[in-house]
Simulated assay, not measured.
Amino acid sequence: MDRANIIHDLLDWIETHLDQPLLLDNVAAKSGYSKWHLQRMFRSTTGHALGSYIRERRLSQAAQALRSTPRSILDIALQFHFDSQPSFSRAFKKQFGKTPAVYRRTPAQGMTEASPQSSAQQPNYHNESPNLHLLYNGKCTDGKCTQWMGQR
């Protein structure tokens, strides 16, 4: 199995486990590589750091939950494995430019929802932030996951 396929499978696995603890050691064990080698391989294939990718995906899922459910911000923060509401709020504001409470109250017009978009065969993983707009639609070729949409 080549590197791109390994990372593709790992991305699919991460996406289905975002609401579970994803310690780097556990992700590395899933991949069968050391955490150091996996991080180098992930960055060289996707162009993104593994830990940052997981955090950004969790925050995107949390943003979707903020807009689609009446659950408390604390409940959503804990669901996506943030230690506290303040740490969640800091990370959320850093990624989206506004606090979770403000984000929840802001109409979604003109913004692409931070949620996976369905596809007939392969998933699209979408991540929205002020500086980064990631869209991974499950395609890796020539050792690179090339379907990342670039910087805004």
Rank of each mutant, 00 (worst) to 15 (best):
A4D: 08
T106S: 12
V102Y: 12
S119Q: 13
N131Y: 15
A4S: 09
H81L: 01
A28S: 07
I54T: 04
A101H: 02
Y33Q: 09
S68Q: 15
T106L: 07
I73M: 05
R40Y: 00
C140N: 06
A62R: 00
L132P: 01
Q39D: 03
R105A: 13
K139D: 08
L22Q: 14
T45V: 14
P70R: 02
S87P: 10
A114I: 04
E15G: 15
G110Y: 07
T146H: 09
R3V: 08
T141G: 08
R57K: 10
S34W: 01
A101K: 07
S84R: 10
N5L: 03
R55C: 04
P100K: 04
M41N: 00
T146V: 05
R55H: 03
R57H: 06
A29V: 09
M111Y: 12
P123C: 10
T69C: 00
T146N: 07
Y136R: 07
Q121E: 13
Q39Y: 05
P21Q: 03
L11Y: 01
F80K: 00
P100S: 05
L59Y: 02
L24T: 14
Q61N: 02
Y103E: 00
Q85H: 07
E56L: 11
L11F: 02
I76T: 04
E128T: 06
S115T: 14
R104Y: 00
Q117V: 09
L78R: 09
F96A: 08
Q39A: 10
D83V: 11
S87Y: 11
P21E: 08
L78Q: 05
N26F: 03
S115P: 04
M1D: 09
D2K: 06
T112S: 08
G150V: 03
L22N: 10
S119M: 10
F82Q: 07
D75K: 04
R40S: 00
K30G: 03
H133G: 12
